[in-house]
Amino acid sequence: MAFTFKKRSNLPGFGLALGYTVLYLSLIVLIPLAATFLKASALSWDQFWHIVASPRAVASYRLTFGASLIGALINLVFGVLVAWVLVRYSFPGKRLFDSLVDLPFALPTAVAGIALTTIYAPNGWLGRPLASVGIKSAYSPLGVAIALTFIGLPFVVRSVQPVLEDMDKELEEAAASLGASRWQTFSRVVLPTILPAALAGFAMAFARAIGEYGSVVFISGNMPMRTEITPLLIMTKLDQFDYAGATAIAVVMLVFSLILLLPINLLQKWSSSREEKTSALVPEEIH
């Protein structure tokens, strides 16, 4: 088979559309990203390692990854629950709740940041009761986890919801008719079906949380070694005109987000192939 760049098509405009796409993509995204790696390559390996493995940087990775993981795990559990409740049950205000699930996508992060900080500050609506039982929420790693839970909230809900909607009840009825309890049906039939979508949502929430800045800087307190997230460390280095330091740590973050793209893509593929399979199992029309 001879190699062809493009399959034959009767529609016009391919050259113009693709040309403009590649040009604009290069100017806005690819060239600036390449310049960053170029700038980082000016550092020797020892210099680079000295910056990215410094105790302050390592402490920031630990907080960023730890709090992102906690936030994503909370969203995995509650996201599946919320999706289930929104798809399967009816209750007053359901449509309002459904629409507002996307709020963390739409609300500017700075607004989320000051709102959460005011709620969880020592004299805040929830900060005061928490403080009275000895739990420090704002200005502590817990505050970071709260903010990262907020910004990752829609991912699991929105990736599980369509799978649950498309799922045929016949599968569950078949399981039940074979004698499975409701919990067994859920854990052996429903859960395996939604698992790929739930994990894809989990991975997206995790990836989003790692880069997050606006909602965290207000609530975290920003103490080096204790409550300083990695994006803030980059910001601090920039404010001190330490461009080399900022670039080195930015490269670490870029590499991590590129690595994370792979499992996310695989999970999404797995999820859509699983969806096709389960719908193929139960033919649309059984007469």
């Binding site: 600036p32 990203l33 310049a35 700038k39 880069g211 994006p231």
Partner: peptide, 20 residues
């Protein structure tokens, strides 16, 4: 590649233009 900006931290998104 088109989706790439979604996976870049906002701070890094600003930084790449400072470096350029």
């Amino acid at each position: 590649l088109i989706d790439l900006p979604f996976s870049v931290s906002p701070v890094v998104s600003g930084l790449i233009y400072v470096l350029l």
